[in-house]
Design a protein around this nucleic acid. Structure first.
Lengths: 256, 256
DNA sequence: CTCCCTTTATCAAGGGTTTCTTCATTTCTA
DNA sequence: TAGAAATGAAGAAACCCTTGATAAAGGGAG
């Protein structure tokens, strides 16, 4: 995600280090020097020197057995600082816990960052078979109820940008036709919620509503997610509970 | 915390950026350009350029109203990656939840990083009056049960180093005499647990035990923390439950 | 089980590139 | 409106990349 409103140029060396940090993900948390070199298109000695710099202050640590590198405890600390400063998360958590208790399904809170959605909080169902998604994971906005509700309230130019980047299919039910997606988004805005099944994962179902801040702007999506066969017949009831929860959170954020 | 086993020099620009990131803490999550400049002893234009570099990729974000800078969502994502790769946390969490449920007090998991302790997981009591400490916060090792249990099992040279850095008092009961501290640590090792009151916060009480990994090494401290007047009379029972929980976690980590 | 070869990680030095230092300009707040 | 903070630009100074050497580790073959 790029913020290019400022004229000041970025520091090349700094930007390169940040780019490398972005390689460490939930899917691939461990990297070797050669792997990073190839992935980033940088000399191995450059990569190594960056890793030593990060390791020096605990931002990265090396697994002595495998010699591979992984993110260090300092990033855990900084991550907690970010989590703490999200008023939205603090306010939402107890409401989400209650909603999960009442519905027995996973409750998720997502925001938009750039052209993607990120799960910033979740309360997982305690049922053995449950829907879940990793906290902090980035997902596309056109598949899944929680992200489609966010997409619906984005500015038109941003929706255009997302569509122009392409709409990959995750299942046979994932919408990939731009006109059909726009139609869906219009319906979502009209009814003020999104219910979708099977479009991100087969057998999955999500019921999502928007959360507003004091200025009436949509700042997050709240959803109940689970298995379709469990949720389909009680969708109305789940929707009402989700709406009540979102209203509660919105009010605490200063919405009218 | 410095890892200086490698001969490769760190990148000055990179190190400077990391040093700046370390300024953003739970206590002070927002900084202005001039504040950072003075705190770090760097020119304002250098600080500004570093901030723009971090902002460019979402590692830092600027509050438009106050013009101050705070950590960005990218660090939240990386923080989650770190949290996920901590096998200890994943294994411990359900056990901690049960322990909290059974004891009604806050349960905490701490590790050592450098010469300090860090809380890497906690399950807070649901009682309105409860003991708590921020997740991810660094604390000294000589005050409080959870950290003293960790200190007790550190190598002698590391204990010496910590003592030589000084033992600040948090209450009148905080141990600050090196000989007395060593005595306490010996007792803790002997009995295999630590119970302390009032030495980190007045009225607070903690019961802590060590968690071992597959090699028998102490990798974390597990504790029940609460108010002294609630815990004092049932300390034996709480200690047994804490020991059982720690044993369970240790076994799942491969300890015998 | 040991040795050899291949791959990866680590390290060093000079030329080229990037960033700091200084100060100007813009923006914001009281 | 004035002062303080944020933002931005250009030449000198410092840093880093590029290249290749060395060390370490792992795997396969005998």
């Amino acid at each position: 995600m790029e913020n290019n409103t400022k004229k000041t140029a970025v520091l090349e060396t700094g930007d390169r280090i940040l780019r490398m940090l972005e390689c460490f993900t939930i899917e691939k948390p461990e990297w070797g020097v050669t792997e990073l070199s190839e992935h980033l298109g940088l000399y191995k000695s450059v990569v190594h020197r960056m890793l030593v710099t990060l390791e020096h202050r605990g931002f990265i640590t090396q697994n002595p057995q495998s010699q591979k590198y992984m993110l260090g405890i300092k990033l855990f600390e900084l991550g907690v600082v970010v989590g703490n400063q999200m008023n939205l998360r603090t306010v939402a958590k107890p409401v989400m816990e209650e909603l999960c208790e009442n519905t027995k399904e996973t409750v998720m809170l997502m925001i938009v960052d750039g052209l993607e959605g990120i799960c910033v909080e979740k309360v997982e169902s305690t049922q053995s078979v449950r829907y879940t998604s990793p906290l902090g994971k980035r997902v596309p906005l056109h598949a899944g109820a929680t992200t489609k509700i966010l997409l619906a309230y984005l500015p038109e130019d941003k929706i255009d940008k997302i569509i122009s980047k392409g709409l990959p299919k995750f299942t046979d039910y994932t919408v990939s036709d731009p006109d059909e997606l726009r139609q869906q988004l219009q319906t979502i805005r009209k009814q003020g919620y999104c219910i979708s099944s099977n479009d991100f994962s087969l057998g999955g179902m999500g019921i999502a509503v928007p959360i507003m801040d004091h200025s009436g702007e949509v700042v997050a999506g709240l959803s109940i997610s689970g298995l379709e066969f469990r949720m389909n017949d009680i969708a109305d009831s789940l929707l009402r509970q989700c709406q009540a929860a979102a209203d509660s959170i919105s009010k605490r954020l200063g919405a009218r």
